[in-house]
Design a protein around this nucleic acid. Structure first.
Length: 502
RNA sequence: GCACGGGUGACAGAGCGGCUAUGUGCGGGACUGCAGAUCCUGAUACCCGAGUUCAAAUCUCGGCCUGUGCUCCA
């Protein structure tokens, strides 16, 4: 099977290729660290986490670089507004970024370069662009002259210069102080009072936004690399600027083989924005739902589709997560952790067999193939999640009515299946220990359970006696009493089970 | 205006030439004192029109509707 990905530059699904066999050089635009991460960031970095994980699962050696933009107008504004030092703000939100992304089970990239460490390298590229006639020095900085490489314009958006001029009306005729042309973008911004500055051949100032990614990707990955990702809003102008800068500087095209852009997140059908008051930060959501649930909600969509986040979506994700988790728990219990060399080998699955176990084993193989096919088709994680869900159901069938030996072997098989696909690739499983714990809640909750277990068991014995005598009013009264203790009782075929209410 | 996406059952949303998507919700059943959970099972689709084809939700053309972007933004 071959992996196919949608390349925004060629605007079609293409076979995934690498410059060096077996190795993937991958760069994803990171955050500007001036505030907490919101749902859109979570979506983006989960999307590329999936790309990262699937490439590794497919056998590639992935080198993943993601930057932090640690100097920018928004950071300066935040510093002025809060009276804090800009570097302190940067440090705070870089830490917050790691906290949020770790919670979402996003694997760390191999490097997290910060743009302020690359000012000198950016300036070398800028100088080279000036030397080659692609950039010019103006009164308020250095600009890239887009018309110097007009054929590269609009490659990620399918637009051309005339079209944009025609459609944008009066807005684009306003140029900067000494910009030659409205399309030109800043490589270097001359110092303004009160702003942090660095030295450059063009005087004190700070770098423009686009040049940082060119400098950092080139430093870490070279003049050409395999995959560049980011939110779809970055296609234009940010990523087009990277094409201009990188390719004009190196003379090599294309700078990036595959451009991948993830879709946006809407809230209740509306664009997420601070002014609408529907701006959800990651840590706010994680105060309410399990990180795996949020992750599932976001993975349950192909990365290019927009996601409409709402209560129902989170509710569905919660239920689906419980289903997967419960299958995982059942599998772990059935296996029981027996050493692999003591397990009896499983027979070949057979869809047509009258034997349930053989049928289920065959089904599980099919779901595994379907999962891989889905991920190979431009990382269609939604389809992949569907396979995990049907497999979770199949696991219940597989594990029912087995003798002890088969149960261990099938339990192990199901455990490995889920850990490979739901765990390793989709990142949706907690640790074995957590899954096995009766509840995945924190230790305070566990402590509470231990504390009340004796009393609850006493009451349940009384209630069972009442039920046996068909004394329903007493039975219900006891259940009410347990409810006062936050205990929820469910009667099952194996007798009553209880848990703390959420 | 230009560009790029969409229009699938009650809802969300896959599939993109022949094969049950999936999940929630809904109906029936098992289990049930009640409640919940679970399991089994069922029903409801492919915007409109024309064309290509043995076969179209899937390809082509036209129409209608709709989302997003167009230098703050993941």
């Amino acid at each position: 099977m071959t992996l196919r990905v949608y390349d925004s530059r060629r605007r079609e699904k293409v076979e995934f290729t690498t410059l060096e066999a077996g190795k993937v050089k991958m760069y994803v635009c990171g955050v500007t660290v001036y505030d907490r991460c919101h749902l859109g960031h979570a979506r983006c970095y989960i999307a590329f986490d999936l790309v990262h994980r699937w490439l590794e699962h497919s056998g590639y050696d992935v080198h993943y670089v993601q930057n932090f933009t640690d100097i920018d107008d928004k950071i300066i504004t935040r510093a002025i507004d809060t009276g804090r030092d800009w570097q302190e703000i940067v440090a705070t939100y870089i830490e917050a970024y790691y906290e949020d992304m770790d919670a979402l089970n996003i694997l760390r990239a191999d490097a997290y370069p910060r743009c302020t460490d690359y000012v000198e390298k950016m300036n070398l590229i800028t100088q080279s662009l000036i030397d080659k006639g692609n950039a010019y020095v103006a009164d308020d900085g250095v600009y890239f002259h887009v018309d110097s490489a007009a054929e590269k314009y609009g490659q990620l958006t399918g637009q051309n210069i005339e079209a944009v001029l025609g459609g944008a009306g009066g807005r684009v005729t306003k140029t900067g102080l000494t910009k030659r042309d409205h399309k030109d973008f800043a490589l270097w911004k001359s110092a303004k009072p009160g702003e942090p500055t660095w030295d450059s051949p063009w005087g004190a100032g700070r770098p423009g936004w686009h040049i940082e990614c060119t400098a950092m990707s080139m430093d870490h990955l070279g003049e050409q690399f395999d995959l560049h990702g980011g939110g779809e809003d970055l296609r234009f102008p940010h990523h087009e600027a990277e094409i201009f800068q990188g390719e004009c500087h190196s003379g090599i095209s294309p700078v990036v083989t595959h451009w991948l852009h993830n879709g946006f997140v809407n809230i209740d059908g509306e664009k997420m924005s601070k002014s609408l008051g529907n701006f959800w930060t990651v840590n706010e959501i994680l105060a309410k739902v399990d990180p795996h649930v949020l992750r599932l909600a976001l993975v349950n969509a192909q990365y290019r589709s927009p996601i409409d986040m709402n209560e129902q979506l989170l509710g569905d994700a919660e239920k689906n997560y419980q289903r997967i988790l419960s299958a995982y728990r059942d599998a772990l219990k059935a296996w029981g952790g027996s050493a692999l060399d003591t397990l009896t080998p499983l027979p070949e699955g057979d869809v047509d067999s009258p034997n349930q176990m053989l049928r289920s084993l065959a089904q599980m193989e099919r779901y595994a193939e379907g999962f891989a096919r889905a991920m190979d088709d431009d990382f269609n994680s939604r389809e992949a999640v569907a396979k995990v869900l049907v497999a979770s159901r199949e696991i219940a069938k597989l594990l029912s009515g087995l003798d002890a030996q088969d149960s261990e072997s099938c339990g192990h098989f199901a455990t490995i299946w889920l850990e490979e696909f739901a765990g390793q690739v989709l990142g949706l499983l907690p640790s074995r220990e957590t899954a096995l714990a009766e509840s995945s809640e924190d230790s305070a909750r566990a402590g509470r359970i231990i504390e009340i277990t004796g009393r609850v068991d006493e009451l349940l014995v009384l209630r069972e006696a009442a039920r046996a005598g068909k004394d329903w009013s007493t039975a219900d009264a006891i259940r009410d009493e347990l409810k006062q203790m936050d205990v929820v009782v469910s009667d099952t075929a194996e007798g009553p089970v209880w848990d703390l209410a959420d």
